[in-house]
């Protein structure tokens, strides 16, 4: 019966693709909000197969999997291959909380030479490469929506937001794109 239950991503068929700017919905991924104190970090890192970053505004990646530092005891773990992240952490006895948010968030991939300018229409952080280098990630604001911004390349960002805000975020990017 599972095959028949259609999965509908919030931004299915949306986005735009220009020469200087592309905004496209990311493929579905599994996501975990991982909350853990420092003591559990090592075990969780081992279980997930990557080092949970300990430095603010940084990420670590391995293959299709990445962990984004969101707070001193909070990470957003994304597996673009769709691996079961909850199961991966289930065996770690140290105190932590692993909560599946695969469907809570959705993501847009923003790329092209104008990507940073479009994001700067709504994001108050300094997005210069110096202040926000490749690999940096941060929870922040884009207009009136909270996002998690992850710079995946000099001209490439992944923008994660809660699904119901994705329409607003995309509309604001479209509006901003008219100005860059």
């Amino acid at each position: 019966m599972g095959e028949e239950t259609r999965r509908i991503a919030p931004l299915e068929g949306r986005g735009f693709d220009g020469e200087e700017l592309r905004v496209l919905p990311a493929e579905p991924a599994t996501r975990l909000v991982l909350r853990a104190s420092a003591e559990a970090c090592e075990d969780l890192s081992a279980a997930l197969g990557l080092d949970l970053p300990r430095t603010p505004k940084t990420t670590s990646s391995k293959g299709a999997r990445a962990a984004l530092w969101l707070g001193p005891d909070e990470w957003l773990v994304i597996d673009q291959a769709g691996a079961n992240l909850v199961a991966a952490c289930a065996g770690v006895p140290a105190f932590h909380a692993a909560v599946d948010v695969s469907h809570r968030n959705t993501a847009m991939l923003v790329s092209g030479p104008r990507a940073a300018d479009v994001l700067s229409a709504g994001c108050p952080q300094d997005l210069s490469l110096h202040a926000f280098p490749v690999g940096a990630a941060s929870r922040t604001m884009f207009g009136k929506a909270e996002i998690v911004l992850w710079r995946t390349g000099e001209d490439a960002f992944r923008v994660e937001c809660w699904r119901s805000f994705s329409d607003y975020v995309l509309l604001l990017m479209e509006a901003a794109a008219r100005d860059v």
């Binding site: 909000v33 909350r35 853990a36 005891d73 932590h96 909380a97 599946d100 948010v101 809570r104 809660w162």
Partner: peptide, 8 residues
């Protein structure tokens, strides 16, 4: 630990 799952 607390996690919002409103939209999950």
């Amino acid at each position: 630990f607390l996690t919002s799952t409103s939209e999950q």
